[in-house]
Computed example of a mutant assay.
Amino acid sequence: MFNNLRAQMLLLGLVGGLLVALPAAPATAADRARTPRIVSQAVTFPVVNRGPGWCAADGGTHQVRGRLVGTRAAVEGRTGARRLNVLVHDFAAGSWFWHLRSHPAYDYATQLARRGEVSLVLDRLGYGASPLADGRATCLGAQAEMLHQVVQRVRSGLYSFSPDRGTRPLHAASVVLHGHSVGAAIAQLEAGTHDDVDGLVLMSWADSGASTRAVRAASDQVSTCLRGADYATYGGDAAAYRALMFRTAPAAVQRSAVRRRSADPCGDATSLAPALLPSALAARKVDAPVLLLVGSADVQVRPGAAERQARSYPRDVAVTTRTIPGAASALPLERSAPATRRTVLRWLRALR
């Protein structure tokens, strides 16, 4: 009996050794099925393009389009009301800035979705999938008002949504606005004017912190508009644009951004200077938590501008300021993008 037991133990040991030595089996279909699938679902919002007194818009009804990015269950509203991150792009950009699917490691919306978040990436009116024939027919104040209308619609679930099978559209229990540069100014205007969001993530923006290079680029753009153009490009030629936006982004990411770069509606460009005071006044009325993010190598924002911006909000508002070492303006597309996302995700989790 002892000899039989000893033989069995030796046999088990040999089998165990073989199992350790064998390479891991590839993921099975069942394994892949357990990994939540991330989807990108097209959505449409009817909005009225109306501006406040300090900027003019056509007052017409237009279609603003975007994409919901998250797990299929969340995007189709099968997980109930939940937080929605609404991502607002800068000049010369579009929804692609947040959802660069050709470079998955730099796809901000999808990477957030892999960690349980759901995002709405928008093409603002006059950009990408939300065309506007006359670029002088909108302005930054109107962009903030249209963003407000989008926020109200995602809270109620009243928007066009066409998934593969009939389901109710996602409706948001809470909304956090993420804005980059001029998109951050639009988000701040919306939040300070309407008090209907639960947090602000503002990247690469300060109301009075624009550098000389940024002012010069904006002035050149306005000059083009004043010569009669409907649309004008921010940042000059491709090399100048790269120098304004990037420092460490991979060359392939920079090339993708340059290919996708769009001209801006001249109504947006010419209303940037008039928007600075309303944006600063709106900051004083924000009552949601704020995360300010800036890159240490951002040539469009003066040193210390983020810290000064932090003092613009009411004293009882929780304001967090973080500097991303070595990064330029386009924080989601720089090599430090994972650090940017980790900072945002930690802050988002603290809101719960």
Rank of each mutant, 00 (worst) to 15 (best):
F2I: 11
N3P: 08
N4V: 12
L11K: 09
L14C: 03
L22V: 01
L22S: 04
A30W: 07
A30T: 05
D31G: 05
A33P: 06
R37E: 15
V39P: 07
Q41H: 10
P46E: 14
G53H: 11
W54Q: 10
G59S: 04
T61N: 13
Q63D: 15
R65K: 13
R65L: 08
G66L: 02
G66I: 02
L68W: 08
V69Q: 06
R72M: 04
A73M: 06
A74R: 07
A74T: 10
G77M: 02
A81W: 03
F97S: 01
F97N: 00
W98T: 00
L100W: 00
L100T: 01
A105H: 13
Y106F: 14
A109N: 03
A109G: 07
A113L: 07
R114N: 14
E117L: 05
V118Q: 09
V118M: 10
L120E: 12
L120R: 03
L120C: 09
D123C: 01
A129F: 10
L132I: 02
L140Y: 05
A142D: 11
A142K: 01
A142E: 09
H148P: 04
Q149T: 01
Q149L: 05
V151N: 07
R153C: 07
R155Q: 14
R155K: 13
Y159F: 12
R168D: 14
R168W: 13
H178M: 04
S181R: 00
S181L: 01
A184W: 07
A185N: 05
A187I: 06
A191K: 00
H194Y: 15
H194K: 02
D196K: 04
D198E: 14
L202D: 12
S204F: 05
D207P: 06
A210R: 07
R213N: 14
A214Y: 11
A217M: 01
A217F: 06
D220L: 12
D220V: 08
V222K: 02
S223N: 15
L226V: 09
R227M: 10
A229V: 05
Y231M: 04
Y234S: 09
A238Q: 12
A240R: 02
A243H: 11
M245A: 13
A249Q: 00
P250W: 12
V258H: 09
S262R: 07
A263Q: 14
D264T: 06
C266S: 09
G267P: 05
A269F: 11
S271H: 08
A275S: 12
A280E: 13
L281S: 10
A283K: 02
D287E: 13
D287F: 11
P289W: 08
L291F: 12
V294A: 13
G295A: 05
S296R: 02
A297Q: 10
V301S: 10
A306R: 02
S312R: 09
Y313L: 03
R322L: 04
I324C: 03
P325A: 03
S329K: 09
L333F: 04
T340P: 10
R341I: 11
R342E: 15
L345E: 15
W347G: 06
L348H: 06
